[in-house]
Design a protein around this nucleic acid. Sequence first.
RNA 1: CGGAGUGUAGCGCAGCCUGGUAGCGCACUUGCUUCGGGAGCAAGGGGCCGGAGGUUCGAAUCCUCUCACUCCGACCA
Length: 445
Amino acid sequence: MRLSRYFLPVLKENPAEAQIVSHRLMLRAGMIKQQAAGIYSWLPLGYRVLRRIEEIVHEEQIRAGHIPLLMPTLQPADLWRESGRYDDYGQEMLRIRDRHERDLLYGPTNEEMITDIFRAHVESYRQLPLTLYHIQWKFRDEVRPRFGVMRGREFLMKDGYNFDIDRDSALHAYNRHMVSYLRTYERMGLTAIPMRAASGPIGGDDTHEFLVLAATGESEGFYDDRVTRLKLGDRQIDYDDRAQVKAVCEEFTSLYARTDETHDEAAFAAVPEEHRKAGRGIEVGQIFYFGTKYSEPMGAMVVNERGERVPVHMGSHGIGVSRLVGAIIEASHDEKGIIWPEGVTPFHCGIVNLRQGDGAADAACEALHAGLVARGLAPLYDDRDERAGAKFATMDLIGLPWRITVGPRGLAEGRVELTSRRTGESEAMSPEAAVDRIAQIYADR
RNA sequence: CGGAGUGUAGCGCAGCCUGGUAGCGCACUUGCUUCGGGAGCAAGGGGCCGGAGGUUCGAAUCCUCUCACUCCGACCA
């Protein structure tokens, strides 16, 4: 992509309304535009990151054997009257009436609807286990939206629902989600700690929240800091292997890690003092096992092997997709701007032409651009007629992890410069070597 | 929902107290010079001063009402 033909409205100054760093940087980098309290347009750069995060979530859900579908944003109120939540949910639920005076609502979550789909089409235990999920916009009419996309009213969320014949099978689904979530966050360059949490209005006995540590987080957690060093890495996981999946969960949950709601001072005191940490975190996901809470009242039953009609065991699991964009920035930035992890970066690298209009520099940049595209990569070439400083400042702000700098001085010796946004370190090399290096960096992502 | 604020050019702000031709910086347009970390000079363009009512010869400024947004607290992916 050539920057001169792109739409990247960056701001030099901080917008007054943005208090926290991710919100400021998203506005300055031209990623979002606010349209109303807690409601945002995603401008091209922000949209690319959002899509990238969505892709990773999809890939890891599918890898775990979960099946994507898509449910609507608007739901009939009757479905929610059935579960009893239409009245319980309160002011947070946006209620709408159509031209025929029928009550609708903009979905804040989808337990009722997925249960409706399930009961219409599944009759037998032979069709289980089943996990369905979608990534769809939600609306919760928060009293006080804030922090940009981290606490919007409209937000994009992956929500998944498992249906199992019994508790053991449902708990395996729970564990499977935990492992798939750990891998999802790791691919985004995040350390997200699963913490035992309180269940809240969705209900159920088992639940973990995934917290990305950040001073601006809204949740409080207490943990053994050795948990932050655990890595899933590239180990192979067989998601059908209950014992293996359970072992991974135990590895990641045996150290103390709880939110303030379930915090237990006595248990925490057993953690060696040098590892005892309390801190704030951004909740980027949560998993629940809630048994037959929805299946029973809504009649989601299957026939078991003894011919009896039994309610299915369910769980639900969410990842805050749009919130993750903010969370990643909170976890990865410096005073100059964003630093995207390679896994979610909107463009794989930037190309900065120091002397636009110089024949050799222009040609070298074009060749680099073409070379990277030929390798299946997406470079952003700053071909504007701007001075070097302005181009560097823009690149640093929007946070592409790698930058190739091209100028007449270096080109005279056949060299360009490859710079890491994270470390600031530069290395001179031939243009071909730079393309090879970038391709290699992204080879397994 | 309680408390505190703010609405003036795309962004950041001044002007309001004490009514009298709407201003500054950045951004934008044109030209010249410059060109390895947000350049300089010159000339331009852009405003229903959030909205509605009122007071006044005259309102960005005073009064009333209203809408929107932000921040602090209690609640939530």
